[in-house]
Design a protein around this nucleic acid. Structure first.
Lengths: 240, 240
DNA sequence: AAGAAAAATCTCTTATAATGAGATTTTATA
DNA sequence: TATAAAATCTCATTATAAGAGATTTTTCTT
């Protein structure tokens, strides 16, 4: 039944029962039984024209998840403060072991180079956010990731061999912040620091600014602010 | 398995396996099997301390649902325009047959009286939003609702008997807009017009302003703007 | 880093509950 | 209101979840 749910994607948010039957190979009564359960639970809903989409429970659960997340609560004032201080976008990206998703963001840039709403997936192989998290992973957890994203990591100039990547990440860990120039969004500078829970990276605080405003001295100042804000948030969420 | 998911609520967003076992009466292996599936699908995740919460798939699905919703897309510029014109909160509330949820909102009020984020449930028996939708329901769909929320409807002075409520709703339908004073949030005025898809109400556009700014003439002007905006959105979403 | 405690998973039999073919009912459409 | 399409029902069959208890893995303590 969860396989039905998994078919609803960005490129294909609407399905007819017949399409689902064909895709999953279920018979008509079986599929309709699943659809009935999913509809009753609110995870799916039918639209006019006999198609199905994600339903109200999805919206409701995200609301719950947002309100129950101590990280989102702790980070909100810091995002507000940082965006008030600089024309930028500040975001919190959670790391779920295999992927990263933006869970909170606020923007004060007049024309943001890119949007980072809650739920937007972020790439694991590129950008300051990914590196700020990877730098704080224990080696055993890190190595599989480096191998999996070897191509991407090479592409942004982190080094040819895994050892080279590890060396760069060690530097980032020492600095406590990662900076990237246009790796995720062309023209955007990303400055990210990890949020640690019990010493283990669970998310990243990232501030993105347009490449134009990027005087070296300003970047240094922001870098320091991000580092400190991430540290503060880490302390606030630690055990609760 | 969906019963497990249903337990995660605003008042109880964290559960231990033992609590779930006790609550649902499942044996240990059974519950763990469920948790494993739900964890693998990303609907649940475990936190430090062996507790479970809603997981990344929830965040991701809401993002999908938001991006795939033609109503959210069509309404966004209107919310922006209305909030730019008045210090207020403008929101879109979808009606799901048995409940209403805010699906989009934007605010320009300096100190909003209340917040209406996506996912917030709205009461079906009170407020301009509820009435703007009920007024456009066919009688057969309407009567059960009136009976179900009779107490609430009486409480806000819509009439003692169902016929009285029906009469008030007929007036609202003729006007095309509903106005309410402090029914959902004390001190807030709500002005709502239905969004129709194929003549059938699927949502409501609502504008809330603080009671202080509420000169009668201003309310009349806003009322007209809301009515027209809702009509425009209806036309835009009609069959895609 | 080793041992104890707790948590999670595994094994295998039993019995429950999901499946599918086809018929039937309900809903939508003209 | 008739016709087509969509959704649900029936029931025998079979697959597959459930549970008791043992076992493994993880976590915590010292």
């Amino acid at each position: 039944m969860l396989a039905v749910l998994d078919l609803f994607s960005e490129s294909r948010p609407l399905w007819t029962p017949d399409e689902l039957m064909r895709e999953l190979g279920y018979t008509r009564p079986t599929l309709y039984r699943y659809l009935k359960s999913l509809k009753e639970s609110g995870l799916l809903m039918s639209t006019r024209g006999g198609r199905f989409t994600l339903g109200p429970r999805v919206v409701e659960m995200d609301y719950l998840s947002r309100r129950a997340d101590p990280l989102v609560a702790a980070a909100a004032p810091h995002l507000a403060r940082l965006t008030a201080a600089h024309p930028c976008t500040a975001l919190i990206v959670r790391w779920y072991g295999d992927k990263m998703l933006c869970v909170a963001s606020e923007s004060s840039a007049p024309n943001p180079v890119s949007s980072y709403p809650r739920g937007r997936p972020m790439p694991m192989g590129r950008g300051a956010i990914a590196r700020s998290i990877m730098a704080f992973l224990p080696k055993q957890r890190l190595m599989p990731l480096i191998l999996r994203y070897a191509d991407d990591l090479r592409g942004v100039g982190l080094g040819q061999r895994p050892e080279d990547v590890v060396r760069v990440l060690k530097q980032i860990k020492r600095a406590g912040v990662a900076v990237a120039f246009g790796e995720v969004t062309p023209g955007a500078i990303g400055i990210a620091a990890p949020i640690l829970d019990a010493g283990y990276p669970v998310a990243s605080l990232c501030l993105t600014i347009g490449g134009q405003q990027a005087k070296g001295e300003l970047i240094d100042r922001i870098t320091e602010e991000v580092r400190i804000a991430a540290r503060t948030i880490s302390a606030e969420i630690f055990d609760q």
